[in-house]
Amino acid sequence: MIAEADIPRLLRVSVERPVPKAEQIYDLLRQAIVRLRMVPGAVISEKALCLEYGVSRTPVREALKRLADEDLVDVFPHSGTYVSKISFEVAEEGFVIRRALEIESIRRAVRFVTDDDIARLDHLIAGMHDILNRGALHEYIEVDDAFHAAIAGISRYPRIWKFINLAKAHLDRMRQLSAPLPGHLAEVTEQHTAIVRALERRNAGQAELAMTIHLEASFAVMSAMDGDGEYFKRKDA
């Protein structure tokens, strides 16, 4: 039997347990791909990754296998591994999943939101305005995701954001491409503000409508980029 006095120590050991190398490499590569630091079509060298992270090929291949399962890399035996091009169809599927889960999330959040939650969301919106004022548009998606993840947390279904995050990788790459469009992120920020004000009023109908308008308007902007440039996968491919 575990003594009560040992529980904090056991929890501490659990928290401090090292993250496996394969998972670390997966997380770093996934973020680089989603944020377009690794552009669609870029060559991925297993040997270079092994040298960079000081590991054998096994954890690198495990990480690449997970990314391939998410359609973020293409692995061609005896040819090479490449960052996948953006698939509009996969991005659209991610949008449909995201919209369904976020609407449920905002509907529940109205029931549980507190004044402290509203203050935290307003703080994130202030961060968005700061990013716009500085013109650091590449930073926006991080705060945007924190905003939506916070709403998922308020809904008391925090795992919803985990599922959304897995589904929206191709969508996120389109979000990153759309960031520099004139006025787009300023409009997104106003939509976020409308969501918070509806939550503040505890009005479920207004909150759901504000979230729906936000998600569909953003996707409409991204949809206009379908097939635009070398980063997109051809529909007949």
Rank of each mutant, 00 (worst) to 15 (best):
N203Q: 06
N133S: 15
L101K: 02
L121M: 12
T81Q: 00
D74P: 00
L28S: 09
I86T: 02
E70N: 00
S155D: 02
A210R: 06
A100D: 14
I7W: 06
I213Y: 07
D228R: 14
D228H: 15
G80S: 03
I7M: 07
H192V: 05
L11R: 11
R111F: 10
M1T: 10
C50F: 00
R234D: 15
I33R: 05
K65G: 01
D116T: 13
R175W: 14
M1Q: 10
I213S: 10
R57W: 03
D69N: 06
R98H: 09
Q31F: 01
I118P: 01
H129R: 15
G153P: 01
P77A: 12
S45A: 01
G229N: 10
F232N: 05
K168Y: 01
T58Q: 11
L185E: 04
A220L: 12
R202I: 01
Q176L: 08
K47H: 12
K168M: 06
V55R: 08
F76C: 05
T114E: 09
I154F: 05
I195T: 13
L101S: 02
K65Q: 09
E187P: 00
A3K: 13
I33S: 05
A100H: 14
E216H: 08
F219G: 00
R108Y: 08
A100W: 09
E52W: 04
I106D: 04
G127L: 05
R99F: 03
V73S: 03
S14I: 09
A63N: 02
E93L: 13
I97L: 11
H129A: 06
D6W: 07
E46L: 10
R108L: 15
A150E: 14
Q176C: 12
D115R: 14
G229E: 11
K21L: 12
D6M: 12
I164Q: 00
Q191S: 09
D228I: 06
A210G: 10
G227V: 04
